[in-house]
Simulated assay, not measured.
Amino acid sequence: MSSLSSSATPRPAVQPVAIPWRELQPWLLFGAVLALVLLYFVGTEQGVFHLIGGSGVHEFVHDGRHLLGFPCH
């Protein structure tokens, strides 16, 4: 009979690393600007205000527009 004994050594607990606020701010600002741009394209592009002519953007975001409750026609 073979004995397989494993000598497990205790590992130290993993401690979370705090992210400094100054390093987090640019990413939060980037995320907020990106969210506002996406909200603009889904919500108002090809409506009263538009930056890109034609109906390509409208057709691309059409289902998302209805899903989020924006009227488009």
Rank of each mutant, 00 (worst) to 15 (best):
L38I: 10
C72A: 13
Q46I: 00
T44N: 06
P26Y: 04
A18N: 07
G54A: 08
S6T: 09
S5A: 14
H58V: 11
S55E: 15
D63W: 00
S3T: 12
G53T: 10
Q46Y: 11
H73C: 03
L36N: 12
P16R: 08
H58K: 12
F70M: 06
W27I: 05
L67N: 08
G54P: 01
H62M: 13
P10G: 03
P26W: 04
V42I: 13
D63Q: 04
L67W: 14
S3I: 12
V42G: 05
A8W: 02
G69V: 04
H73Q: 01
Y40A: 03
H66M: 00
S55Q: 12
V33G: 10
Q15W: 03
I19K: 02
F30L: 10
H58C: 08
H58N: 09
W21F: 06
H58W: 05
A35V: 10
E23T: 14
S2Q: 14
M1S: 14
Q46L: 02
L67F: 15
G54D: 06
G47V: 04
V42R: 13
P71H: 04
V14H: 11
E23V: 10
A35P: 04
P16F: 02
V61C: 07
T9Q: 15
G53D: 13
I19F: 01
A8D: 01
L4P: 09
L24A: 15
V48K: 15
C72Q: 10
T9D: 11
H50T: 11
H66W: 02
Y40Q: 03
F70W: 01
L36E: 06
I19W: 00
W27H: 03
G47I: 02
T44M: 02
A8I: 08
G43H: 08
G53C: 03
S5F: 15
G64E: 02
Q25A: 03
T44S: 08
S3G: 07
R22K: 15
E59I: 01
P12G: 08
S3A: 10
A13L: 13
V14G: 13
G43N: 09
L4K: 14
G47S: 07
G64S: 08
F70A: 12
L28T: 00
G47W: 02
R65P: 00
G53M: 03
L38E: 12
A32Q: 03
G47Q: 14
T44R: 10
L67G: 07
E59S: 09
D63E: 09
V42M: 04
G31H: 03
V37H: 01
P71E: 11
G43V: 07
P71A: 07
V17R: 12
F60S: 07
S3P: 03
P20M: 00
H73K: 09
F70P: 01
Q46H: 12
L28S: 04
F30T: 05
E45F: 04
F41V: 05
F70E: 01
P10C: 09
S3M: 09
G43D: 13
S2R: 15
